[in-house]
């Protein structure tokens, strides 16, 4: 155990032989991945290849069938591990935003600070406002989600995660549900985050983002990692037939 933890040092996220089955569906098969402090890793792959499931295993929204997840050396499958404490350190941004519709933007970014981080109202609001400013919409603090555009909602969702001061941010197709004209405002926020040294694992098909922010790109197909490379290598010089086929399809769009 102790050995294992030392072995993981320097890595924010370690996936070790991860499997996830849904009944007969093998969603994730033997995935190994390490994400270092400050690294930005993009995951691409066809629909149904298990990208979301990998992300959801990292904060235990899905419990792996087999294998291990370590966040900062903490073994998630260990019965002693306080999963809520780990989740507070791992921000998650969803395709559908999942803002709390009965709360204002500011309340969305303060409620977990108060309940989980035990910050008082004043501090939570100060941190919350700072994060709303960081994502560029402090003037929407008192608006409800239904009064915001998709791009604004997704930025509030990012601020909600950031307000917890997470060590790691997970993004599951954060721009896929957005109208084209709103994609850029969300990607810009993510690029800023990457520049500030946030450790990020991002499922996205936005090649521009991957090229300018990613240290590595992971290509997944049918639950498995097919190849991992730098963005330039993966997009310009894919090694595997399945990668080439996938890239030719998304480039055809």
């Amino acid at each position: 155990m102790q050995n294992k933890m030392n072995e993981q040092s320097g890595n924010r996220i370690v996936l070790d032989g991860l499997y996830k089955y849904f009944g007969n569906v093998q969603a994730v098969i033997d995935v190994d991945l390490q994400v270092r402090q400050g690294e930005v890793v993009v995951i691409v792959g066809p629909s149904g290849s298990g990208k979301s499931t990998v992300l959801r295993c990292i904060n235990h929204l899905e419990v792996p069938t087999k294998g291990a997840v370590y966040i900062d050396g903490v073994h998630l499958e260990d019965k002693e591990t306080d999963i809520n404490a780990v989740r507070a350190e791992v921000g998650m941004v969803f395709q559908q935003f999942n803002l709390f519709p009965h709360l204002t933007a500011l309340e969305n970014v303060t409620i977990a600070q108060k309940l989980v981080r035990k910050r008082d109202k004043e501090e939570a609001e100060r941190v919350g406002m700072a994060q709303l400013e960081r994502v560029g919409i402090p003037e929407k603090a008192n608006s409800y989600p239904r009064q915001l555009s998709g791009g604004q909602q997704q930025r509030v969702a990012i601020a909600r995660s950031l307000a917890m001061n997470p060590k790691v941010m997970l993004f599951d197709e954060p721009t896929s549900a957005l109208d084209p004209e709103m994609i850029k405002e969300v990607l810009d926020v993510m690029l800023d985050l990457a520049k500030d040294g946030m450790t990020m694992l991002v499922v996205t098909h936005e090649m521009g983002f991957a090229r300018s922010a990613a240290d590595r790109v992971v290509f997944m197909d049918e639950g498995q990692i097919v190849e991992i490379a730098t963005p330039d290598d993966l997009y310009n010089n894919p090694q595997h037939e399945r990668t080439k086929l996938f890239l030719s399809k998304i480039l055809a769009h």
Binding site: N59, L61, N84, A85, R87, A88, V90, G91, M92, F94, Q96, N98, L99, F100, A112, L115, V116, A157, R160, S161, M164
Partner: peptide
């Protein structure tokens, strides 16, 4: 929607 519980859980509630 299920996403509400998931979002709440993923911030550590």
């Amino acid at each position: 929607p299920k996403g509400q519980m998931e979002a709440a859980r993923s911030v550590g509630m």
